[in-house]
């Protein structure tokens, strides 16, 4: 599971190694990636909202 989260974070940054990609596609099933992706997206949104409300003061 931690593998998938790491890959999704790498995706958000837009950088990934080739053999990590092969490993991900090899055994990871797409639904897990999509789900974690959406969850991480929501976490990112929450983070930005937090930073924005702090900055707004």
């Amino acid at each position: 599971m931690w593998e998938v989260v790491k890959s999704v974070l790498a995706a958000f940054l837009g950088v990934q190694r080739e053999q990590q990609r092969l490993k991900d596609f090899e055994k990871g099933n797409p639904v897990a990636f999509i789900a974690v992706g959406i969850v991480m997206g929501a976490v990112l949104v929450g983070l930005i909202v937090l930073v924005a409300s702090l900055a707004a003061g």
Partner: peptide, 30 residues
């Protein structure tokens, strides 16, 4: 690999940025 992952990430992140078309509409500071 980076291209594949970045394109996939865009699919999700593109849903959270629509507000930059509406900066002058009177949104609150947050």
């Amino acid at each position: 690999a980076s291209m594949v992952y970045a394109v996939a990430a865009i699919a999700i992140l593109s849903f959270v940025v629509w507000g930059h078309h509406m900066f002058a509409v009177g949104m609150p500071l947050v």
